[in-house]
Design a protein around this nucleic acid. Structure first.
Lengths: 143, 143
DNA sequence: GCCATACACTTGCATATGCAAATTACTATG
DNA sequence: CATAGTAATTTGCATATGCAAGTGTATGGC
């Protein structure tokens, strides 16, 4: 067993970042036919169930800086998959909403995502995923 | 229990990417006093034990595209923490090596990293980390 | 109503990420 | 030993990431 405070094999950041790169590539390979990046697909998922939502609320749900979110949405906006409006009740707030075109795109992407998800889960046995996910999410619980 | 093939909560890419963002921020907060990013610290770790290594071998150990690695090394090079040479046996190969200054920098950064690692592991209980890491690494095993 | 403060977002900067195409250097084959 | 093919790296492009500083808007206390 590695010493947990020697940074060569145990570093959580290193392990998690490498995992993120490799998993992202797998999902983006799968989504290439519909020309969606991993974040873009996740944004469509998040928006497909709610109605309009503010930038900051969405950024928070992704654990992402507001400025990052803002810029990452631009390609979806340029494609017409989402639209933005100013909150009528508070002019500071920008609301995001999926469009009809965005919903079609999402429907097109969903089976591609499922293939990547299946391929990924099969590597650990799908029944292991909930526990693994819980462990991962504990790493980022608010104190 | 969430349906594993509904993308709203179960998506491996989404969970892993969010984890990566949040964990990275924690380690980079800790490393800010020595002005090192997460990757830069990991590179110093990797180089502190070996002697010279090629770009592609290092990229491979990080699960990272060669072009990404190449560019990520530039800030360390500019600071004089690493140096690059051409392999005398094969002029296509660029070798990277940590410098004396790089080793000092690494020694300075190590206690900061340990603090972030401690804070992170305490969220799951340090004894849980080896199993969690194994699960994560299974997700990216070569087929 | 006016101002200090707080809030939501935007912009500038530096680094991160990967793919495709181009470049440079070795290697096997005829 | 020229040459096709392969290997290691570099460059151009698009997107990803966060911090700090800036802009515009609401809000509470006066």
């Amino acid at each position: 067993m590695d010493d947990l405070f020697e940074p060569d094999k145990s570093c959580v950041a290193l392990n998690v970042r490498r995992l993120s790169r490799i998993v992202t590539r797998r999902y983006e390979d799968a989504l290439r036919p519909v020309n969606l990046k991993s974040f873009q697909f996740s944004a469509l998922v998040a928006l497909s169930t709610r109605d309009a939502i503010s930038h900051s609320a969405l950024a928070n749900s992704f654990g992402m800086d507001l400025s990052t979110l803002n810029r990452n949405l631009k390609p979806l906006l340029a494609r017409g998959a989402i639209e933005m409006t100013v909150d009528p009740a508070d002019a500071r707030i920008r609301l995001v909403k999926i469009t009809t075109a965005g919903k079609s795109l999402y429907a097109e992407a969903l089976p591609l995502w499922r293939a990547a998800q299946k391929e990924t889960l099969e590597k650990i046995g799908p029944e292991m995923w909930p526990a693994l996910k819980d462990g991962m999410n504990k790493l980022i619980d608010r104190d």
